[in-house]
Every structure is written in structure tokens, then in C-alpha cells.
Design a protein around this nucleic acid. Structure first.
Lengths: 330, 330
DNA sequence: GTTTTCCGGAGAAGCGCTTCGACGGCGTGG
DNA sequence: CCACGCCGTCGAAGCGCTTCTCCGGAAAAC
């Protein structure tokens, strides 16, 4: 591998001049710059990442901490990762992948100066990692909204706003009795705050529009779907529409409705909020803009790496797409 | 951040002694070792990754190159990634994630000495990256089997063996006319060699067992499934079993069969090879052991990082799991 | 008792890069 | 016409670690 000294020799300048040409941190005459650039490309020179990191205390790498447990939708995570990697690369950064959720990994990569900052996914309401991250002092962006962000910036989907949009859509069609099929009990138990935020938005939006409501969580099984429907109807007789915040349970729910002869949207309107629908299952609703969230998180992170400053929360929204699963009530 | 000099001072030894305690590359008396370890944990010392990389020309990082195009099953990729990260961490390595498929990224991370080696996913039969990787000279493991591996080690699922196992299972049940529902035309066109390897194994196994065959690719749409069935029947009248190598088309295929009133397995046995079946759709068949492949790839890579040597191909198999979608022919 | 061996530890030389301070040579203003 | 300032470049000092070489002393060999 060629070193900066090799380049300097070929170009007939000093090593520091080569460094300044490459970094642009000092004015260099056009002639010298040209000679250096020629030498760089002739030798195929590329700075040694470790040496650069040592001298500049900048690694050009960000850590991406993703959960791998089953509660998350792999498609959404994948999109998210894509957004992160693409954006990082667009800003001359690489991405180190961390999957273990223990805090040990976070400490390791930061105190070894392996990364310039971190993007941490799937932050729970009382996530123990938040305190650790704040203490570590490296630039960090949280994806998810903890109760106490400890001054760290947060990015997430506006679940409350999405629910308001969805219920407003149904209300505009004339629906006055709407049930919410909530997230799986396991994800609620895990403290993923988005379930609550969506529920609040739903109730507030319904109240504004004069819509009667009922809510129930839903396990991602056939029986879970039937039980959820029964519970909703017990609390709210004959709902004319359903808002579903549970992509995993959706197939079972639709199966249960089909089994009892209910047609969508003729007998019942259904709106979905969550992961992009797979295949034929696409329903009217809002999808989590995972790619945008990833992009936004990285942009926020890189800003703080350049100029550390306090965190602010950023909620992203997405449009309601009509795919024909809603209609006026009969 | 504490440096090795700080540790040395606290422990009352020289920096080199600290280094040797940490690396274990020289004998150190129990007494000094204890003092050094005490100092290390008291200061929370962790070696600077860049400095270490510069001095030792070892980064402790491996690159994982994954495709993000739609032809791959996200669930399988996720499992694979999990296997890679978990295994790497178990051997004190981290994982840098590359998603762009251009060769530029490969050159960048290797010639910048960002990584010690690479695991490259989704290698096509004539993948242009293989030549580049061989030329770069860093330890590399390919996941997939190119026509010419250029001396690089390969790891993959034994698709041919899986097909033989599946057809043997059907033959043992008494089936004598079996159709193969192949991969999507797009993945075949992309040169993903596994489609061909599976087909060869299928034909060879069928020939051994005296089973008549027909094969057809299958697009992952409802019409694609119907067309595929029609094509198979045109070539092989009244097949009694189907081997499906196409998880994306599977739901449509089952839908088409249900629509024509064919029951599985009473009227038709179905065996699947591919991604683990989602939800209720699980069929008798073999699943790609993505986790194992990831693990195996990293193990092979780390071996070569320690002691470079030529590549060999390793094919992993998985068991046929009976989930009740096969039965003797009527 | 002397010589050899071996073991544990110290010292120092880099690894390849960034960046600060210094320094000529030029143009400008007084 | 001289002093001053600015621009472009160089030299050198690290950044924090690994590893080679060397060295003193204790144990082993003779």
C-alpha cells in the first residue's frame, strides 16, 4: 500500500502538503494540487484509516445498533438500515453494525474510539441504554422516544399524528364507531412507546371528530385476532371501521373477518398503520417511513459530530394512501 | 480516555509490559499481571482502535457485504447477518456493513485498511466482484458459488443436495410424477447459481428414483403461479407432487391450487425449499440454514486472517422437516 | 565457583497521518 | 523604496499502540 510519503515523493512536495490537498484545510496552488492529485491517482493512494483516526481523532465510522428480536418487522428494519447506510456513505462515513442489546457493546465501541457516533434503534420508554449513552458523551441519535432522553436527539415516526390522520379519514367518510386493533401484547410489555402514542392520537382524534371508540391489543395468531374482535365489539357495539396497528396480526384479522362473512370495505372499513403491506394484503393506511427515519437519524448525527449541541425530537409523518379498504358505512 | 501510558504509570510498569499483559504475547509474572489488570479496570482502559490498527496492521473489523435488492428474502438475510455478527463478536471482531454492490466500496475498505477481511453475500455465477476481491488480496469468503472462485473460499447451502433429499422423500411416498416450481425469472436472470444447482440435484435425484419430471420458473404473482402450473402440466400430465423453490411465489401457488379445488396433501403433495415459511404457511421441506452459513463464513474468514491459505468450497445442508404437506399419491 | 541460560521487564523505534508553527517570496500601501 | 502582510509550502511534533532489542538478575548447568 502506498503511503502519504510515497505520494509526496512522486509529486515532489512534502507529506503535509499532500495532506492539505486531500483535506482542503489550507490553500494550495492549482499547480501543486494538480501534481498531488496526479500522484494520488497514479499510486492509487488511500489514507490508512487507523492512522487517520489516530491523528485526527475522527474515524469516519458510525455505529448502528439494531435489535434482532422477533418483535420487529424485518422489512422495516431492512429499510431503515438501508436509509442509514446510504446516507452515511453519502457523507463519507461507514457503518459498524451492532446487534447485541447489552450496553457493553456501546461502551466498547465508544471508548475504543471505533466510531464517531451512534444511531440506536428501537428505544423503549424506559430504555436502560439511554442513560449509558448520555454518560458516554459521544454524539448519539435515538430512534424512538424514551420518557427521559437525557438530552439526546430523537427521531421517530409520528404515530399519534398517523392515528389522527387515519381516524379523520374514517370520520370524513361518515364513520362514527371505530375500533383500534392495537399492537401485540409482547411489544407493549417491552415498553415500545409507540403503541401508547398511537393510542393517544387515536383517542384524541376520535374525540375531536365525535367518533365513539374502543381499543384492544391483538396477538398475532388466529385466536388472538378473534379474541380481539370479540373484545372490541363487547365494548363498542357494531363498529363500522377498524384501525389496525399490528402488521403481524393483520392476516389473521382479515382471515377472521372473511370467516364470519364480513366484506372489506362493504361491511367494514379497515385502515392500517405500520409496515408496508406484503403482496396482496395492501390496505388503505399509513406506512412507517423507515428509509426516511434512517436518513434523518444519520443527518442529525453527522450534524452533532461536526458541532455538538443539544438534542431535539423530530417526528416524521407519512401520507395516508388509499388502497380501497375503506368506504362509507352502510 | 485513559491511554496505555496512564495504565503503565498507575501499575508502576512500562507501557510495553502493559501491552504484553493485554496481548499475552509474552510471559509476565503473576504479580505484575495482577497490578496491571487492576490498573486497567480501575481506569476503565480500552486500547484505541486506530492506534492499535496502525501499529499492528490488524483492525479487528470484518466487512459484511449484503445486497439490498428485492430479489432476496429479507428474513433470510437477517438471519444471515445475525450469524455473522454473533460469530464475529464471539471472536473479538466487529462488523462493518457495506450495502452498495459496486466494487468501489470493496476497494475502499480494503485499501484504507478499514477491515481485516470480507464476507460477501449473494455471489452470482459470473459475479464481477470475485475477480476484484481476488486481486485485492485481503482474506475473503464468498457466500454463493461462482463459476471461477479465483482461489477464494466459498460457503453456501447445498441446494442440489436439498433437492435430492426432497425428491427422495416424495419418491419414498410413492410419487412418480413430480414438478419443480423454480425460482423467479428475475433471480435466474441475475445469475444466482443456486437455481441451476437445485434443478440439477432435482433432475439427478429424480432419475435415480425413477421419477418423471417437469420444471418451470415461476413469477411471484397470482398469474405467474397459474401460468407455471399450466406449463408444468403441459409437460408432465397430472403430477402428483410439487417441489417449490420459490418462497415468494408460494402463497400465490397455494392460492391457485385452492382456487381449483386441489387439496394439499390429499390431492397434491407439496415440498418447499427456501426461506423459513412465514406464519401458517409452513410446508414440509428444507430451509436455508442462513444462521449457520453466516457462522461458517465468519469462521472460515477468521481462519484465513490468522493464517492465509487457499479457498475451499463448503456446502451446508439442512434436514427435511415434515409439516404434513406430503402424503402418498392417490 | 564460574559460566550459561532463561525469564521478566524496560526502552525505543516506528506504524501513517494531521496539524501547528515557521519561513521564504510575492504584492501592496505608505 | 522599505516595511508589512499574506499566501503557499515545509518541517517536526505528536496521536496511542505494538514489537524488537537489550539488559539485569536468578536459576541451572558444569
Amino acid at each position: 500500500m502506498a503511503t502519504i510519503a510515497d505520494v509526496a515523493q512522486v509529486a515532489g512536495v512534502s507529506a503535509s502538503t499532500v495532506s492539505y490537498v486531500l483535506s482542503g484545510k489550507r490553500a494550495i496552488s492549482a499547480a501543486t494540487r494538480a501534481r498531488v492529485e496526479e500522484a494520488v491517482s497514479r499510486l492509487g493512494y488511500r489514507p490508512h484509516a487507523g492512522a487517520r483516526a489516530l491523528a485526527s481523532s475522527r474515524t469516519g465510522v458510525i455505529a448502528l445498533v439494531v435489535p434482532l428480536h422477533d418483535a420487529v418487522d424485518v422489512g422495516v428494519v431492512m429499510q431503515f438500515v438501508r436509509g442509514v447506510v446510504t446516507t452515511a456513505r453519502a457523507h463519507e462515513h461507514d457503518v459498524l453494525l451492532l446487534t447485541q442489546e447489552e450496553t457493553a457493546g456501546l461502551e466498547r465501541v465508544t471508548s475504543a474510539s471505533l466510531v464517531d457516533g451512534l444511531v440506536v434503534l428501537d428505544i423503549g420508554v424506559d430504555d436502560p441504554r439511554v442513560g449509558v449513552l448520555a454518560r458516554l458523551g459521544r454524539p448519539t441519535v435515538l430512534v424512538g422516544i424514551p420518557r427521559d432522553p437525557h438530552g439526546l436527539p430523537c427521531v421517530d415516526f409520528d404515530f399519534a399524528g398517523a392515528a389522527r390522520t387515519a381516524v379523520a379519514h374514517l370520520a370524513a367518510l361518515g364513520h362514527r364507531r371505530v375500533g383500534l386493533v392495537g399492537a401485540t401484547p409482547s411489544s407493549v410489555r417491552r415498553g415500545a412507546g409507540y403503541a401508547d402514542r398511537l393510542c393517544e392520537g387515536f383517542l384524541a382524534g376520535a374525540a375531536d371528530a365525535g367518533v365513539a371508540t374502543a381499543t384492544a391489543p391483538c396477538a398475532a395468531t388466529a385466536e388472538g385476532a378473534r379474541a380481539c374482535l370479540a373484545e372490541l365489539r363487547a365494548r363498542l357495539p357494531a363498529p363500522t371501521a377498524l384501525l389496525v396497528h399490528n402488521e403481524a396480526a393483520l392476516p389473521h384479522l382479515l382471515g377472521a373477518l372473511a370467516a364470519e362473512g364480513a366484506r372489506v370495505p362493504a361491511d367494514l372499513s379497515v385502515v392500517s398503520i405500520g409496515a408496508p403491506g406484503a403482496g396482496e394484503r395492501a390496505l388503505t393506511g399509513l406506512e412507517v417511513p423507515a428509509l426516511d427515519i434512517g436518513r434523518s437519524a444519520v443527518e442529525a448525527l453527522l450534524e452533532r459530530i461536526d458541532a455538538p449541541r443539544a438534542g431535539e425530537t423530530r417526528l416524521l409523518s407519512s401520507p395516508l394512501v388509499d388502497r380501497g379498504s375503506t368506504a362509507p358505512p352502510r
